[in-house]
Structure formats: structure tokens, C-alpha cells
Amino acid sequence: MLPALPLSISPNADTAIPAVKPAKPWLAFIFGTVFTGWGLFYAGRPRAAVSLVAGLWACLVIGGQLRIFGSMSGLSVIFGLVVLAKCISAISGAWLARRRVWRPSLRNHLFYLAGMSCTLWLLLHAAAWPYVLGFTATRIIGDGMAPTLMTGDAVSCVARSQYDLGDVVMYEHPARDLIKRIAGRGGDTVELVSGDLMLNGHNLGPFYASTQAQPYSQTFEPTPLGADQVFMLGDNRDNSRDSRFDGPVMADRIKCKVSEILYSAHQNRIGRHVD
């Protein structure tokens, strides 16, 4: 019986993996600048592209949960994170373009762009901000809170677990959401005497109101509040629809606390903290 001979397999040119055409670095740089991660995706690094986008969103969501974005400085942090992610996408994509090991098809590009469009929509759509970034932005309509807040001001509003006396808050109203100041909480008795706020018999003075208010807005009879109620007052007592007319508000209707003016027609008001 003849001994078994070792088998040898000769290389077959038909089974060789074809070389992938290198990408254009300048095109990868442009793609990475337009959409975060697109430069890396074009360079044949889809996992790196997805990881970069996921890392950006993780930073945004964590920052939102920590309530660090509801101010001008917080918006600067968001802008910085987005710019940093785009720089990483563009520069690393351009550097890796000539070492491309996988060439995405047109369909791959379209799927990636569709996904990025959805994430961009979330970032730009104000209705998603409370869940993603931890705050919402709204525009002031009316002069009920003047001079603290003026018509046309854009303000940030941050949800909190509890709200204190004097906080400017946004709450649900049958007509539309209103922004007023908390002048009394559950169990308090609220009264206006000669323009001064009397809270449980203690005189708190004008309580942010203009001292030039008209006589008809200076007096309000004693009103006891239920355990789950709050009393709202506008700083512009002469022109404010608040709890003097609508009655106390249920505490669970408060949506968020106004924290800062993000935009105003008066430049010196931008970035002002709302007290």
C-alpha cells in the first residue's frame, strides 16, 4: 500500500479578492463636513461612522439629562460638540480614504443619508428637545410678564421635579401655554393689598410687579390654595391674564421653569438669566 502523499492547493487567480479602488480624500472631507460620519462611511469605515454619530448623541442625551444645555453657554456646548464631530468625520475620513477596504454602493449611501436626516430632524425639531436635550425653547407672546419678558423674546424652559416661590414657569392653559410667576403654593393664602402681595399674612411687597400699576390691579381678596394648587401672577399686573381671573392652577399642569433669554430684539437682553 502506497503512503499517502500530502495535498497541496495551488492558488487560483479566480478566487482572489479584487482590489478596492481608493477613495478621493477631498471628497471624503466634504462628505464629512456636510453630514457627521459621512466622510468615514465614504472611506469604507461604516462602523467608525456609526460609532462617531452614536458617541455624539450619547454626549447630547447625557448632557440633556444633567440639565446643562438650557442656556447660551449650553447651546455653545452643543455647537462645539457638533463641530468637533464634523471635524473628526472630515479629517479622519480624508486620511483613511486612500486605504479604503470596502466601497459603499449608492444604495448604502442613500440608507446612511436617510438615517442621518432622521437624527438631524430630531436635533432641529423643538418638540424633541425636552426628551433629547433636556429643555425646550418658546417665544413670548404678549406683555403679561413685562418688563421681565417682552413680546418676541425666545426663552429656554427646563423641566424640574419641583418649583419654588417666585419661579417663572410655563404651564398648560385651555387657550395656550402661559408663562407667569409662582406667587403661592399648596396650603398658602394669597392676597393683594395696595399692590403688595400678602402671603399667609406676610407682606412680600410688590413681588416683581411694577410700582406704577393701575388701581384696579392692586387689590385681590384672600384666596386659600388647595394642597395641589399654585397661584400665578404676571409681573405686568395691568395686562396679565393670571390666577386673579382664571383661579389657581393645578401643580401638575406646570411644564417647565423659564431659565434664560436666548434671543431678543434688544441685544442687551440676550443671555439674561430669568429670576
Rank of each mutant, 00 (worst) to 15 (best):
residue 101 V to L: 12
residue 68 I to A: 01
residue 79 F to A: 15
residue 128 A to Q: 03
residue 27 L to M: 15
residue 114 A to L: 11
residue 122 L to I: 13
residue 42 Y to Q: 05
residue 9 I to Q: 12
residue 6 P to A: 04
residue 19 A to D: 14
residue 116 M to K: 00
residue 5 L to Y: 10
residue 114 A to N: 03
residue 12 N to I: 06
residue 18 P to G: 12
residue 26 W to E: 12
residue 14 D to Y: 15
residue 67 R to F: 06
residue 20 V to C: 05
residue 73 S to C: 01
residue 63 G to P: 08
residue 103 R to F: 06
residue 112 Y to H: 14
residue 79 F to S: 15
residue 122 L to S: 03
residue 126 A to I: 11
residue 29 F to C: 09
residue 32 G to I: 08
residue 54 A to W: 01
residue 89 S to A: 05
residue 51 S to G: 14
residue 82 V to P: 02
residue 106 L to D: 06
residue 28 A to L: 13
residue 92 S to R: 13
residue 71 S to P: 00
residue 74 G to A: 01
residue 46 P to T: 11
residue 134 G to L: 07
residue 79 F to R: 12
residue 126 A to S: 12
residue 111 F to D: 04
residue 66 L to G: 02
residue 18 P to K: 11
residue 118 C to T: 08
residue 111 F to C: 10
residue 6 P to Y: 01
residue 97 A to E: 06
residue 99 R to T: 12
residue 26 W to P: 07
residue 34 V to I: 15
residue 132 V to H: 00
residue 111 F to R: 04
residue 119 T to A: 08
residue 108 N to H: 14
residue 126 A to L: 10
residue 36 T to D: 00
residue 22 P to R: 08
residue 47 R to Y: 11
residue 63 G to S: 09
residue 17 I to E: 05
residue 36 T to H: 00
residue 39 G to D: 02
residue 3 P to Y: 11
residue 19 A to S: 15
residue 33 T to E: 06
residue 126 A to V: 13
residue 41 F to G: 00
residue 63 G to Y: 09
residue 77 V to G: 06
residue 128 A to G: 02
residue 78 I to P: 01
residue 4 A to M: 10
residue 84 L to M: 14
residue 63 G to T: 13
residue 98 R to F: 03
residue 89 S to C: 03
residue 9 I to Y: 12
residue 61 V to G: 03
residue 3 P to W: 08
residue 83 V to F: 08
residue 71 S to K: 01
residue 91 I to C: 10
residue 71 S to M: 02
residue 61 V to T: 11
residue 93 G to C: 12
residue 101 V to T: 13
residue 3 P to H: 11
residue 82 V to W: 10
residue 15 T to H: 13
residue 17 I to A: 06
residue 118 C to I: 13
residue 57 W to D: 05
residue 39 G to F: 02
residue 16 A to V: 14
residue 22 P to S: 11
residue 42 Y to C: 04
residue 61 V to K: 05
residue 53 V to R: 03
residue 114 A to D: 04
residue 85 A to M: 08
residue 58 A to W: 08
residue 81 L to D: 06
residue 91 I to V: 14
residue 10 S to N: 10
residue 119 T to D: 00
residue 110 L to G: 05
residue 59 C to P: 07
residue 111 F to Q: 06
residue 47 R to W: 14
residue 119 T to H: 01
residue 77 V to P: 06
residue 57 W to M: 09
residue 121 W to P: 00
residue 91 I to L: 12
residue 122 L to E: 01
residue 72 M to T: 11
residue 133 L to V: 05
residue 8 S to Y: 15
residue 51 S to E: 10
residue 19 A to C: 08
residue 109 H to M: 09
residue 67 R to S: 10
residue 102 W to C: 06
residue 46 P to G: 07
residue 75 L to W: 09
residue 56 L to R: 04
residue 20 V to I: 15
residue 24 K to L: 15
residue 72 M to I: 13
residue 49 A to F: 01
residue 99 R to G: 14
residue 11 P to R: 13
residue 117 S to Q: 10
residue 54 A to C: 07
residue 45 R to G: 00
residue 87 C to G: 04
residue 5 L to A: 09
residue 95 W to V: 14
residue 34 V to Y: 03
residue 49 A to K: 00
residue 3 P to Q: 09
